[in-house]
Design a protein around this nucleic acid. Structure first.
Lengths: 256, 256
DNA sequence: CGCGGTGTTGACAGGCTTCAAGCTGTGTGG
DNA sequence: CCACACAGCTTGAAGCCTGTCAACACCGCG
């Protein structure tokens, strides 16, 4: 459990990037916008937000009036029990939407913490109905996004419920590898995951000690390397094999 | 794991209930439809389907062209690993929607099995875009439903990842209790859950033996009774207390 | 320099799984 | 009407996977 800072600052509004110039559009796994959609989004967007590494972006129980899309950086969603036991639910990175539950259910039932410095795109939830009314395609995309998140949670639940320690870790690392890999255009580049072993443990329902010893087995098999505060995947296929898991290869996905 | 029958039969079309006369509207936790919405839904609905207890309603990997709402009966969503280990993801009962993932992602990534005899309402997924176009409110509801399911999966993941055996079982039984309780108007009636200990084990990532021994502890504390193929909850508050869980008390929810 | 976050390792305990056997009730067929 | 099979529930024993406790090494940082 990290010492939780609540440092969230509004970015200089002058630095606000126009949706038209959104760097995420360069990524070829995200669907294209029609020009009127883009115009609406630019208006729907009310600003940007920066969160420092380690800070809490959204707190469980808050009544946030916002929706966010990650522009840069990593974060993770998590819940805790009264006595402090923490369960990481999923990881979010550029192009991912957060806060939909708060917008729809009225209250966040999980928190979000920044793994690295993070820049967020802020949307007004009050205008969500307008989005559904004027741009049915975007409304459909929102449902798509929610259903996709559900699919991922299904897979995580299968892992935590039925895979053993080494299978779980192999699953998580290959899952994250594939999730990040679509974000970098340079395929040669080594992919580094900015997580600690504590994060792995809290994602998979394991203790930190056992996680450490199990990761060591994967390192010995030369499937991954563990560096300071992070790991690099050396053999994804080997990992996916241990986990008996195959990634979703569908390319294009919607985003807001 | 049950011997899987694949008996799914189309109900006699004469028996089709009009959406206007849908028995689910009597339930006061479901939101009301506007009359034009109701008319559209009646048209959107293409028929009804009956599934026998124990049969598989939807199979992982299938490209179903349908969406379903449960009219009566219980079922559960699950995934399996190659070697047969099974993880139950969630339970569905009257008013719940299934098949959204198949509609949105193109392919089901989990299966659904009937716990009791089940009657389903069938919708054409081809007309989903029409729904979003003509009835933004219904589109919003769909997103709401998907986000709500996500919320439940978050809670399950927390349980399986971080709660111990007795907490997990206490959580699951009180969760199911609250989920069913809104369905019966008669509050005095004892609530019976038509699941076996094997289902409990497969939902919570436990072995059947340990599940049995842990349930015995709850029975000894007079929190539940276990009957033949099912259990009755005697003290929900006691269960929720063990699990350190509080149910979502929000009343009204959308449905299709 | 000292401190806190992170990773590493060993010893030990215990929660949970596996194996195995038996019990009960229900349904089916001769 | 009884034999038999089968599904679900119980119970005991043995052992492993995983958690807890404890100590230490490393490193960046105030």
């Amino acid at each position: 459990m990290n010492g939780e800072k609540l440092i969230v600052k509004l970015a200089d509004s002058k630095k606000r990037t126009k949706c038209k110039e959104c760097p995420l559009h360069k990524l070829n796994h995200l669907r294209e916008f029609a020009s009127d959609e883009l115009e609406f989004m630019d208006n729907f967007k009310t600003g940007e937000l920066n969160s420092d590494k380690g800070s809490t972006v959204l707190v469980e129980g808050s009544h946030s009036a916002h929706l966010f899309t990650i522009l840069s950086g990593w974060a993770f969603r998590y819940k805790t029990l009264e006595d402090g036991r923490r369960q990481i639910l999923n990881y979010v990175m550029p192009g991912d939407l957060i806060g939909l539950q708060g917008s729809v259910a009225g209250e966040m039932d999980h928190s979000i913490e920044a793994l690295t410095n993070v820049t967020l795109c802020v949307f007004e939830r009050d205008r969500l109905m307008e989005l559904f009314g004027k741009f049915p395609d975007l409304g459909y995309d929102l449902t798509w996004i929610a259903a996709r998140e559900e699919q991922i949670l299904d897979e995580h639940l299968l892992s935590v419920g039925r895979r053993n320690a080494i299978e779980r870790i192999a699953y998580l690392l290959s899952f994250l590898y594939y999730k990040v890999s679509v974000l970098s255009s340079d395929k040669k580049e080594q992919i580094n995951l900015p997580i600690t072993q504590q994060h792995v443990a809290d994602t998979l329902g394991l203790s930190i000690v056992h996680t450490n010893k199990t990761i060591k087995k994967l390192v010995d098999k030369k499937l991954v390397k563990w560096l300071d505060r992070g790991c690099t995947v050396e053999n994804v296929a080997g990992l996916a094999d241990i986990a008996a898991w195959e990634p979703d290869t569908k390319k294009i996905r919607p985003f807001l």
